[in-house]
Amino acid sequence: MNLTQYAAARTLELTDLFTVDASRIPPLGWLALGCLVAYLAGAASLWVRGRRWSVLGTISFVLGSLAWFAATGLAVNAYAGDLITALIFQVITMLVAAPPLLLMGSPGKLLLRATPHRGLGIPILRAAIAAQRSRAARILLHPIVAILVAVIALPGLFFTDAISWIMAVPGGHQTLLALLLVFGVIGGAPLWALDPLPRKPSFGVRLAGAFLELQVHALFGLVLLRSASGLLSWYSEEPEGWAVSRALDQSLSGSLVWTYGQLPLIIVLIVTLSKWRRSDMRGARHRQRAEDEALDEYNAYLARAAEHTVAGANRKDHA
């Protein structure tokens, strides 16, 4: 087999990771499709009634749901037990890539607008509003929690080899992916959510969280790239049937973290800095407007005082 044939064979094997087999889609993959259908049904109901709903937000949620399904419903889910690269793709997608797209779709606002205010819709709306105003939501969506999720999630799973224990537990793999999506939403809400939140972090806190997460991901990717020995006991043996060594598999996973895992965080930094600048400019304009109004009032006061002085002097001259 020449080099071209070998490369073609390897490419064919990699494309197998992204095929769909309906009989092997786990519940988490079906849940992604269910959320997508429910969201589109809600958006369509608003459009049919002539009410406005963001097309860009809808596109964002669709992409987020498809990313969620790609990580859990494609063949890559079945091969995550053999390849670290497949598992890292799932982890990064569920923790970093899918949550921002889902959050920018404003599913909370859509739920409140599209749910009927009668019948079964009433308890659904009450439950949603109660959850949004609950103490648990205020705690989970605190900026400190988001920073802790960003800093602890990947090192806690991989540097302690906890991932090997989770993979060995029946159902542990799917439970891990579900929890990563939840943690990703909790950690990403202060940065990406367009829905009303119990508390809104400052731009400084958002930048600090994104910067720390960027550094953690960089360190994590570097360890995967540079580690000569196997990092995880679950992946200690050579992957069978893939014609790649475990060292290469681990190195590829590190490259995935450095590229696919870092891009959303870089976007966060750029968007946050841009919003911070616009906010400061709006604040400066408001302060300038207030100062101008105060100066106009003061000038008017001086003009009235001068008029009174002149009038008083004229009365004295006439006397």
Rank of each mutant, 00 (worst) to 15 (best):
R49Y: 07
G50D: 07
G50R: 09
R51H: 13
R51Y: 06
S54C: 08
V55S: 13
V55G: 10
G57R: 07
G57K: 03
T58W: 00
F61K: 00
L63W: 11
L66M: 15
L66R: 06
W68S: 03
A70Y: 03
A70E: 02
A71M: 13
T72R: 09
L74F: 11
V76D: 01
V76W: 02
N77C: 09
N77P: 11
N77V: 09
N77T: 07
A78V: 12
Y79Q: 10
A80E: 11
L83S: 01
L83P: 08
L83M: 14
I84T: 08
I84L: 15
T85Q: 04
A86R: 00
L87V: 03
I88E: 04
F89R: 01
Q90L: 10
Q90Y: 10
V91L: 14
I92M: 14
I92A: 10
T93Y: 06
M94P: 13
M94L: 15
L95R: 04
P99T: 00
P100Q: 01
P100S: 02
P100R: 00
L101H: 03
L101Q: 01
L101V: 02
L102V: 06
G105H: 02
S106M: 13
P107N: 01
G108A: 05
L111Q: 01
A114M: 03
P116N: 02
H117K: 12
H117L: 12
H117E: 12
H117S: 11
R118K: 10
G119I: 05
I122W: 10
I122K: 11
P123N: 06
L125S: 09
A127G: 07
A127L: 15
A127Q: 04
A127D: 05
A128P: 12
A128T: 08
I129G: 10
I129V: 15
